[in-house]
């Protein structure tokens, strides 16, 4: 089973839920693979403290072959991302704008562009049979978040058959990288925070999931009274998987990077509901 953990708002509790759920599953003898897809700020391993072996992640970037170039500028004119700057005897690619689409290489009639690669980040792996972690870590200053997330997902697809459950800890928000993480998931769990900020972001995320035709389960975190959520859930037929109370001890444990199973979450029920649904 492939489960994507998402939230509109940052700090809603995705990582906390991911860790608790993964630990529960391992205690039940399940083999679990966690993908940390919040590649701008990957935090899962702060809670697992695993030794990770990192491999660098490359993406395609065009390279200039000067002797073939006639400075026709067609590559720069056709690039819809304005990633190429060409003048007479001058050719430059702006890596932060390049989407690695290869259009320029196809456009060039003079074989003056060839494919090359550059590093945008790295992927760490823990090589643990029961609880394996794949962590994407974007290089600081790099902007190709989605490209790195795709590669982490790609890597996880190659090894997914060795695990019973795959949990994807997504980046916050509702933009492209989040969709990327949820598109192929069997189950989506939205972790939402019980504040007006949290509810507002949850509604935006819910619309997005509706747009891509995905059902989801809801976990309300830092639960006080569930204002807005109860009504929304019954109106829209959303299954509420659980409510995690607003609890200073949980906040304290989290702050130390040490979230332990708490009695208030009925993971047996959560797991069974996911299996049935």
């Amino acid at each position: 089973m492939n489960i994507s953990i998402v939230s509109g708002k940052g700090g809603a509790g995705k990582t906390t839920f991911t860790i608790l759920f993964a630990k529960y599953l391992v205690s039940k003898g399940k083999k679990v693979l966690i993908n940390d897809l919040d590649v701008e700020e990957p935090n899962v391993n702060l809670f697992l403290n695993k030794k990770l072996d990192y491999d660098e992640v490359y993406i395609y970037i065009p390279e200039h072959i000067k002797e073939n170039c006639i400075s026709c500028k067609e590559c720069a004119e056709k690039c819809l991302f304005n990633a190429l700057v060409v003048a007479k005897d001058f050719w430059l690619v702006l890596p932060e704008l390049c989407h690695s689409c290869k259009l320029c290489e196809y456009v060039c009639k003079y074989s003056a562009i060839k494919g090359s690669k550059r590093v945008i980040g790295k992927i760490g792996q823990s090589f643990d049979k029961m609880l394996h972690l794949l962590e994407g870590r974007l290089n600081i200053g790099e902007s190709l978040t989605t490209a790195l997330i795709k590669q982490v997902i790609g890597k996880s697809l190659k090894i997914k058959d060795n695990y019973d459950v795959i949990i994807m800890d997504s980046p916050p928000g509702t933009s492209c990288p989040v969709i990327q993480a949820s598109k192929d998931a069997d189950k989506i769990i939205v972790v939402a925070e019980d504040t007006p900020f949290g509810f507002s972001d949850f509604v935006v995320l819910s619309d997005m999931l509706k747009e891509i035709g995905k059902d989801y389960y809801l976990v309300i975190n830092k639960y006080i009274d569930g204002e807005g959520y109860s009504e929304f859930a019954s109106k829209n037929n959303v299954k509420v998987l659980g409510k995690i109370p607003y609890d200073i001890n949980l906040a304290k444990n989290y702050s130390f990077g040490d979230v332990e199973d708490i009695d208030t979450i009925d993971f047996d029920n959560i797991y069974n509901t996911l299996l049935e649904g």
Partner: peptide
């Protein structure tokens, strides 16, 4: 600002 350290934060 937005969360993260990617494109929109930059």
């Amino acid at each position: 600002g937005p969360p993260g350290i990617g494109c929109s934060t930059i």
